[in-house]
């Protein structure tokens, strides 16, 4: 299925959960946050939140900043 992850068109297999996506994309970060279609997905909901075709996701991690 086609979704958007961090602004990029991305193909995911059907049934992928937010937890699966984070595991694949977190790049070693443990302090990660996910927005799905403009809403926060709490960490506790990642395993049961299934991604649907057309969803827009943002996977965010800490960076330096003032």
């Amino acid at each position: 299925m086609q979704v958007t992850v961090n602004g990029e068109d991305t193909q995911l297999t059907a049934g992928t959960t937010v937890a699966d996506l984070v595991a694949a994309r977190s790049g070693g970060h443990d302090r990660v946050a996910v927005a799905l279609n403009g809403d926060v997905v709490p960490r506790s909901s990642w395993p049961e939140t299934r991604i649907s075709p057309g969803d827009a996701l943002e996977v965010l991690a800490p960076t330096a900043g003032g």
Binding site: N6, G7, R25, S26, G27, G28, H29, D30, R31, V32, A33, E58, V59, L60, A61, P62, T63, A64, G65, G66
Partner: peptide, 15 residues
């Protein structure tokens, strides 16, 4: 600290 898309973030070692 700030929050950015994971590809653009600094390495986890800063934390």
């Amino acid at each position: 600290v700030a929050l950015r898309r994971v590809e653009a973030s600094t390495s986890a070692s800063m934390l």
